[in-house]
Design a protein around this nucleic acid. Structure first.
Lengths: 303, 303
DNA sequence: AAGTTGTTTTTTATGGATAAAGTTCATGCT
DNA sequence: AGCATGAACTTTATCCATAAAAAACAACTT
């Protein structure tokens, strides 16, 4: 049966809004709520029905207003707000990156389905989607081949990444002064210096910033294939570093400095400086990944 | 139910082998046949059973040998040898490229499923696979958006293509003399001059040659993302020109000459010459596509 | 007329079943 | 021991069913 994660997530969101006063007094119309929560009215109505049922909202001759205060246990647990497909993704990435899955292993849809507790269909759809990342390959009628999260992979990934980003960065520097990209860049620059000051406690915030920064640069090239490729980067980094926190603060600190230099180069609009800064940063990102890859390999072997 | 296209295709292949004498006299073992036909022994046995049943092969105390001659109507029709997934692909491409499907149209899985006579699952799997081509986009819980086979698409596609191929071509020229790529290139050069002589009747053969040529160049970069990207090109060109034969001979003739110049440049190992030849050829390929796109748009409008 | 809410219809996300194809195990033959 | 066939088992390709979510329609209200 289809999961009701959309409803549950919407419910939690509504509860949050009630709690921090965004919905004080009389509630807005169903349509207004629908817009704010980005779900269909059908779902909004389901949420409202439950809110009323739990007396978080009171209904009296057609008018709805806030009811009793929201308690911590009014929320649905997080796991129930994530669709199956997302769970499959998470479990697969864990299986691949943390298990001792070696290059050359063949992937069995049925086995994964059993292991993850979903229908084979869901596994298959995930694998098709995932295959664009270059880590698995389909052999018709037979199954999938895991090619390995190897150094080769990282090298090929960065070869493309550098090519794309050099181009985007040069295009960026050619934007007219009036382009909104410049102000966004200035804002990001500030965010970087701010983070630098609070680095001690907040170094986890870097990954979000990193993503925003590179996405911004890519925006200059307005090419869907470059965008899509950056999705791969984001995805891989997200999962890989989620389980690989070694030296995180150190790494992020260095990267922040590289970013700041890179931003400076962009603002100078000096083509050579840009190339140098861009290459320097990406080379260092690649080294970080490569190092963690070898470390990772060793830990798997010894595990 | 799963289609038995694998069996039928294998059967046809076996019939062909019988017909042109590759299997004269006593047949090889099941395992040997399996290897030659690239299917499982299970399928080989099914084929053999049917061959015997139709007396194309005779069996006598455990030994199999050729029976009556193969007739034209012993073959299964082509349509029955293509798996559902492939049919979906073909029908979808036709729907997209030939129908009057406008950019911005939303794609309905159920509707396509009905139209194509398959289960929704098959449609969905195809769309997921196809989404990497940058022509459609998924909006969760809602459907897919067709972004249009537009000029923007062609421009973005070629922007990447040029970037990749310039790099591959330069890497190609740096290969040592001993690299097998050089002899493959020489063979392709011959194939080109041969085709040039027989251009009148054989200009359809160019697309295969074109594909082989560019794939060969890409081989020099040994990067899975570049390979995968060329899959997009191949796919798009395959379907697009399948229904767009305008000026085909003319186009191909020009392209052959460009290829020959390009090959010469590679053989000269002169970096500048290579860049010029590569850019020239790709620019002309892009123009061809763009022209046919506008022509295509107009014909759709008038249709 | 534009915005509400109530109701019905359509479509997506997900699970389940099954024939076909692939793989492994068993037995027998040189 | 090594290869051939037979039989049993496993996995993939494919269809179908259904609850959840979205969209469309209808009836009111201000």
């Amino acid at each position: 049966m289809r999961t009701d994660t959309v409803y549950k997530k919407a419910f939690n969101r509504a509860a949050n809004m009630l709690r921090d006063g965004q919905l004080a007094g009389e509630l807005p119309s169903e349509n207004e709520l629908r817009r704010r929560m980005c779900v269909s009215r059908t779902t909004v109505r389901k949420v409202l029905r439950e809110l009323v049922h739990r007396e978080l909202v009171t209904e009296c001759n057609g008018h709805r207003s806030t009811g009793r205060p929201v308690g911590d246990n009014d929320y649905y647990p997080d796991a129930e707000t994530t669709p199956r497909a997302k769970h499959v993704e998470q479990q697969f990435m864990e299986w691949m990156l943390r298990g001792d899955t070696r290059p050359g292993t063949s992937i069995n849809e049925l086995e994964l389905a059993r292991q993850f507790g979903v229908a084979t269909n869901g596994i298959r759809e995930f694998l098709i989607r995932f295959s664009r990342f270059g880590l698995i390959e389909k052999r018709p009628n037979t199954g999938w081949l895991f090619k390995g999260f190897t150094e080769d992979f990282a090298l090929e990934l960065f070869e493309i990444r550098v090519m794309f980003e050099l181009r985007s960065a040069q295009l960026f520097s050619l934007q007219p002064d009036s382009s909104p990209l410049w102000s966004k860049l200035a804002a990001l620059k500030m965010a970087h210096t701010d983070l630098l000051e609070r680095i001690e406690g907040r170094f986890h915030d870097f990954s979000g910033l990193d993503n925003r920064f590179h996405r911004l640069i890519n925006e200059a090239s307005q090419n869907r294939f470059i965008d899509d490729f950056y999705d791969i980067i984001t995805f891989i980094f997200h999962y890989h570093y989620q389980w690989n926190k070694h030296d995180e603060k150190q790494r992020n600190l260095a990267a922040i400095h590289e970013h700041i230099a890179y931003i400076g180069a962009l603002e100078s609009r000096n083509s050579t400086r840009i190339e140098v800064a861009c290459r320097a940063h990406l080379a260092s990102a690649r080294e970080t990944l490569m190092r963690s890859l070898t470390a990772f390999d060793e830990s798997s072997i010894n595990a």
